[in-house]
């Protein structure tokens, strides 16, 4: 899509974060921005607080394991603006050696659980997260199952009942 047909959101992000934006497109009518890891917290705050955008919802936070691509992971955020009825997707590439992104917990309360889930499933850490532990799986579980190198049927030994006294 040519730059002139971009939505208000993309134009504003281009203005403010032009140097840190890696890619930008609106395929299938869905605004998508790829930004560098360092800019995500600032961008999220900008999206939330800018009076022309007001993306007050963090609709989804997840990751994708691209496996062969470098950098390997991509953390994907979906934002929704109730007031302007607009959506934007923000993606942050994260390398395998240092999978760490700034946490959004100071901005949205739901980020706490969504980030815990992403840590649980992909092993991506979130800096400044108050309580980063597994959400869906149990503490004894080894590895991160949604990574492409974790086989779907690889079971781990059953954990016995816990001693209530311990």
């Amino acid at each position: 899509m040519p730059e002139a047909e971009w939505s208000k959101t993309l134009k504003k992000i281009q203005e403010q974060f032009g140097d840190r934006v890696i890619e930008m497109h609106a395929q299938l009518g869905q605004d998508t921005v790829v930004v560098s890891k360092a800019a995500i917290f600032e961008l999220a705050r900008f999206l939330r607080d800018d009076p022309d955008l007001k993306y007050n919802y963090l609709m989804d936070l997840t990751a994708v394991d691209h496996f062969t691509r470098k950098p390997r992971f991509e953390v994907v955020y979906h934002f929704l603006s109730l007031e302007y009825n607009a959506r934007v997707r923000v993606k942050v590439p994260v390398g395998e050696s240092d999978p760490e992104v700034e946490s959004l917990t100071p901005l949205w309360k739901i980020a706490n659980w969504l980030e815990r889930e992403t840590w649980d499933m992909f092993g991506i850490k979130f800096k400044n997260h108050p309580d980063l532990r597994r959400l869906l799986l149990y503490p004894e579980f080894q590895g991160h199952p949604l990574r492409k190198d974790y086989p779907v049927t690889k079971r781990q030994p059953l954990v016995g009942p816990k001693d209530p006294q311990a």
Binding site: M59, D60, T62, V64, D65, H78, K109, I110, N112, W113
Partner: peptide, 29 residues
């Protein structure tokens, strides 16, 4: 809101299917 985020790599299998279920949010709250 029930959302599905799908990433396709052009093959016959989805590369990633993310289900964004509405239940988790009230549970977190």
């Amino acid at each position: 809101e029930l959302g599905f985020y799908i990433v396709s790599d052009g093959t016959d299998r989805p590369w990633r299917v993310r289900c964004n279920g509405p239940c988790m949010r009230p549970m977190a709250a």
